[in-house]
Design a binder for these strands. Structure first.
Length: 277
DNA sequence: AGGGGAACCCGTACGC
DNA sequence: TGCGTACGGGTTCCCC
């Protein structure tokens, strides 16, 4: 569930709270969430490490670390919460689902909590981190990302526009909720072939996408079911969703009953048959 | 190559 | 009530 606005919310809060902090020790409770590292290597890398900063890339939270051990190569912890994952600075409501626990030198605890455990925590050395970054597409909120770059990418695909928006290699950070919302705002039907878009439609799409992402970030993301921020609080954008989760309800613009299908890449897709062409 | 499908995981919803 | 089963959801990996 956490997409770009939700992981951005977590990353901003953690950067403010953790920049410069030192991790005393890490406890790995559920090793199956780990990627690209082992429990022993991760513990050694973070024992005594300083947190340089925290930022977001795609739908992941990246914690930049300066390890204390000279032979520790892990520089970045990449946390991808997927559906139920949470990075918490407060005590989790149910400790049964704590996967990782980091004790900070100042007495605080940062934990990775995940009920379904489809989320992951990767330990990256510089090489692996560059490889991971390189596999991801551009950030939609990056001002250097242009309409023509988006349009060029869309023109290469005969897939449905919604599927292409969610393809992390073409565009990073957009998931099911914001793909549905951006297409509604742009007046584009989700099933349209990506390469059928005119340039002015790609322009409307990029502007809609940026608007909806920025509006959601301003309200600290969408909590539809599971998303919680670093302090266990909910996001405020769910009340502003125009189509996602509103199948069979009236369109907010024209009142037409919203249509839904599950057949587009196996995910809930909702649109207004009148407003979206 | 690019697209399709399974696997990952477990709470929730639903059927019997 | 209690048990069993189907389902969902993004990403990765495998296969065609």
């Amino acid at each position: 569930m956490p997409e770009l606005p939700e992981t951005e919310t977590i990353a901003r809060d953690l950067d403010a709270a953790l920049r410069g902090a030192t991790i005393d020790a890490g406890e790995i409770v559920r090793a199956d969430v780990l990627r690209d590292t082992t429990p022993a290597a991760l513990r050694r890398a973070i024992a005594g490490a300083t947190i340089r900063g925290v930022h977001r890339r795609a739908k992941s939270i990246v914690i930049d670390c300066a390890p204390a051990a000279p032979d520790a190569t892990i520089q970045h912890l990449v946390v991808t919460p997927r559906f139920t994952g949470a990075l918490l600075l407060t005590a989790p409501r149910d400790d049964r689902y704590t996967c990782l626990r980091f004790a900070l030198r100042d007495g605080r605890t940062l934990c990775y909590h995940d009920v379904r455990r489809l989320g992951t925590v990767a330990g990256h050395d510089m090489r692996r981190h560059a490889e991971w970054q390189g596999a991801l597409g551009p950030e939609p909120l990056d001002p250097t990302f242009t309409v023509d770059a988006l349009w060029g990418s869309l023109r290469g695909s005969r897939q449905a526009i919604k599927t292409v928006l969610m393809d992390q290699r073409r565009l990073a950070g957009v998931g099911n909720i914001y793909a549905n919302e951006a297409l509604f705002r742009a007046g584009l039907r989700p099933t349209r072939a990506a390469r059928s878009l005119r340039r002015r439609e790609a322009d409307a799409l990029l502007r809609s996408l940026r608007e909806v992402l920025a509006a959601s970030i301003a309200l600290r993301g969408t909590t539809f079911r599971d998303f919680q921020d670093a302090y266990g609080a909910r996001g405020g954008f769910a009340a502003h969703l125009a189509v996602y989760g509103r199948a069979d309800a009236p369109c907010v613009t024209c009142g037409t009953v919203l249509r839904a299908t599950h057949r587009l890449a196996g995910r809930q897709t909702v649109w207004c048959p009148t407003c979206q062409r």
